[in-house]
Design a protein around this nucleic acid. Structure first.
Lengths: 352, 352
DNA sequence: TTGTATGCGTTATCAA
DNA sequence: TTGATAACGCATACAA
């Protein structure tokens, strides 16, 4: 007694805000819920063509699609991935977000986003909220100031991928720019172009592995390079004025001064200071900054940068996660991608 | 027979990846699940202090927190808000995202993000995926090319807030910059500063309400202003070369030429073209762009902008949504916020 | 090959 | 004031 298909019904009648359920489909097709469920999940299995047809029709007519929430509850799998970013206004975080989001979509996952807005106190809440929502895995571009936060992630038993910021105690895949390599690339480039008094400018390094690594690499480079002087400064230690003073000091040392900015935010601060001082990039001051941005070519004579493979970082982070979700169990991996030098005129002013 | 509290148990023992459930808590406290649920949700109601104490202790010892998924299934309320952004690389989208994210967090909601990456084909999938996940409301900063997509949002019965892009057929709250006002502000500023041959540069306006409104406002301004000439051009019609040609034509018309860029992306393209032409902002060419960015002060002599109240837009969008979620039923509102002129040297070169 | 029954973790409706 | 019990929408072991 097949329920005759009702041909000319408005294709979907979800008039009210209520979605059709599997029970509605079953009723309409004149079969049991189990049959509908099987049709959905295990198509390969044995289904009478006639029944399959009816179920398919009913699904179409009702505009039915399964509730991911209910599926998650039942299966334990939510098809959700949690992403914690330190600060969405940071272009790097955004780039990672973008790469991750793309990869997730392709794999049929949805991203749950938590932005810390540079507030370390929320780090733990963020992770716990995400875990509560049954995210299957976590991509963490955290602040790194709260070790208990990542510990919470680990305890959840879900796979975790760390991006850009490492956590010593955390056994997790790690995806990042090759910080040391990038700094060497930038510094070597400056030296080759004739700049010999280098200043490394960074945001506070305490507790942030990527900043530490970059600064350490800079120190190591200076120690190795003959005839090159180098110092570091944390640009926020004393606000804009302190930075300006550091730049004046740098130039007062009398050689060919250049700045190596440890990320895009620092680049912005340095550019502001240089503008305020009335100096010219490439002439008065050599410059290379880590992080390529759309505006780098437009500031002064063009700012040289080391571009991070941001998109690849986001995609790889997601890929690592997906592999783990599919059961891969290898020891924590480290994926370090090289930066790429984009030479512009800010670093080419003083050929030796 | 109260289950004696076990005092010196490690505060939480969620060793494995399995979270404690309400049943675990009930067992541990020696009460029923219902009691635990009541303790959680209707604290005001009558609970024997002794029982309450035991439940509270059990919750603490187990590190229990309710599963939002199960709650969503039962209540229909997920504490989730869906956000669709046209393009996370667009600073405007990011700013909205940031404002919305902040407001959501404060209200105890989590954001589910879907980024279209400027791909109109995904618009509908995005909304449907979000609705499937039981988001309670939607904030849409969409592409606007697929009307069926927003229709799907409307059909879901959930409250929707449109940001920046209007959809005629859609009865929904709308939050946006006062586009006409912003354009008038910028154009008036240019004219007051002595520029009299204006070029409005925009991304393709077809199907995107905000772009249409801005362009219309520009045309209206020019029609009204005596002694001012003005044209519009879509910067992508013919790539970088076409834009450069438009700029050359503009300048060839011999008066005091200025560009009004309709958003930050256009600003970038114009700045690139100007750099390629070897012109100087403020001298050869006046300039004001809609959208304030961190780099605007650093390009050329400083680019004048009209700043959008981005953070407020994001917060207001969320606020509208939350009001609706709390039962407010007023007709669709329009919230238009004024832009703010940030005058820099790109527009101050030619005092009349 | 299909249907029945049970459970995922909650909340809500009844009784007790 | 508390405790069984039945949903919520779905997947699955088991029975038919």
């Amino acid at each position: 007694m097949p329920a005759p298909a009702v041909p000319s019904l408005p294709p979907a009648a979800p008039d009210a805000g209520l979605r059709a359920t599997i029970a509605d489909v079953a009723r309409r097709a004149g079969v049991s819920k189990a049959t509908v469920s099987r049709f959905l999940n295990r198509r390969d299995e044995l289904l009478t063509p006639e029944i399959a047809r009816r179920v398919e029709a009913a699904i179409a007519e009702l505009g039915y699609s399964p509730s991911p929430m209910a599926q998650a509850l039942k299966r334990g799998r939510s098809r959700l991935i949690g992403l914690v970013v330190a600060d969405v206004t940071n272009p790097f975080s955004v780039a990672v977000l973008r790469g991750a989001e793309k990869a997730c979509q392709q794999a049929g996952y949805l991203l749950m986003l938590f932005n810390l807005g540079d507030d370390a106190d929320r780090e733990r809440d963020a992770i716990e909220a995400l875990v509560a929502y049954q995210v299957e895995g976590l991509i963490l571009n955290t602040l790194g100031r709260d070790e208990r936060a990542v510990a919470a992630a680990a305890r959840s038993g879900r796979p975790v991928v760390l991006v850009d910021r490492r956590h010593a105690e955390m056994q997790a895949d790690f995806v990042s720019l090759d910080n040391a390599g990038a700094v060497r690339l930038a510094a070597r480039h400056l030296v080759d172009a004739g700049w010999d008094e280098l200043l490394f400018v960074s945001e506070p390094v305490a507790g942030v592995s990527s900043r530490q690594e970059r600064e350490a690499a800079f120190r190591a480079f200076v120690a190795d390079a003959a005839g090159i002087a180098g110092r570091s400064v944390e640009s926020w230690a004393g606000g804009a004025e302190a930075l300006a003073q550091a730049l004046r000091d740098l130039r007062a040392r009398g050689r060919r001064p250049a700045v190596l900015a440890s990320n895009a935010v620092v680049t912005l601060r340095v550019a502001e200071a240089v503008a305020a001082l009335g100096w010219r990039f490439g002439g008065d001051l050599g410059f290379v900054g880590i992080d390529e941005t759309e505006w780098a070519p437009l500031v002064g004579p063009g700012l040289s940068t080391v571009a991070q493979p941001t998109d690849a970082l986001g995609r790889l982070a997601t890929a690592c996660l997906l592999e783990r979700l599919q059961g891969l169990t290898v020891p924590p991996r480290q994926i370090l991608l090289p930066g790429q030098l984009v030479a512009r005129r800010s670093s080419l002013g003083t050929q030796a």
